[in-house]
Design a binder for these strands. Structure first.
Lengths: 149, 149
DNA sequence: CACTATTAAATCGCGCACGATCAAATCGTG
DNA sequence: CACGATTTGATCGTGCGCGATTTAATAGTG
């Protein structure tokens, strides 16, 4: 008779064996944790991530942002329009190449960075992990993501 | 002068330090990998996860499913209606307690399980991880999720 | 130079995900 | 038994996320 698996009695189709579900539900758990912090900034999580990119490098095109975040223009265009409506950035065609749209922070957009400074530490505490563990886990996830991608 | 951090030159607000972004973008990478496999079954990823739950235990209420998947009725009700329209399950009020709605697989719903059997292995290969690594990473993620939760 | 191919962004449609609200059924307490 | 509180699911509005298509600008080719 075949030796039974030491862990998890179900088949490979069992929910508790799905690495993907662990990633999926952890992403939602993060979103719920971020929400009250980001509400104070008037941002959603995807908007916050776009602002992170722009705080690192301003004047990117829609495509540049999409390449960093793995999102396409169908997602970014409406999101960027909402950030523009909120007064955090401007969108204008690049005169060098009219196909491109350059995204630039406004003063309000740059000033929001100071308020956002406290967010990573608050989330970090909530994870219950120390910095080294977080970096190791992050590295494994990015490796997995790139293997999938 | 302060000793510079050995890794990652940016601040805590830098995208490449955000564990959350690693989880978020890995979840999307998984979704993209699953899509062609699930298209063959006529399911989206969230629908597939609901089917996983029902293949393990049939006759659950909407709330039972939500508790397992951490989703609420605003997400599940329309999703379940689509699965009902696809002929995979039935939705009916529990005569014992008319507030509850019992979800039951149809024959077609049960039969779909056989087709789904090949999905986890195909995904597992794409991760580039062996079973032990997958289980360890999954365990760490669930621990993180519950800490956030 | 004309013409095609490619690229960048916008648009449309659909399906989550969730906060807020609502209606109905049930439970609890007096 | 009556009546307020709780539970369960449905509904509505907003914002992603992405496949498919469209439009405009640019690059490449004969």
């Amino acid at each position: 008779m075949p030796k039974p698996s030491p862990k998890s009695s179900g088949s490979l189709l069992s929910l508790d064996r799905q690495l993907c579900f662990a990633v999926y539900s952890t992403a939602h758990a993060f979103a719920r944790r971020y929400k009250p912090l980001l509400d104070a900034l008037g941002l959603t999580y995807p908007q916050y991530v776009v602002m992170l990119v722009l705080w690192e490098e301003d004047g990117l095109t829609v495509g540049d942002i999409g390449a960093r975040l793995l999102l396409d223009s169908a997602t970014l265009t409406p999101l960027l329009k909402r950030l523009e409506a909120a007064g955090l950035l401007t969108r204008e065609r690049d005169p060098e190449d009219e196909r491109r749209v350059r995204i630039r922070l406004t003063d309000a957009g740059r000033e929001l960075r100071a308020k956002a400074e406290s967010v990573p530490r608050a989330i970090g505490c909530a994870t219950g992990l120390d910095l080294a563990e977080m970096e190791r886990l992050q590295g494994e996830l990015l490796k997995l993501r790139d293997a999938l991608g």
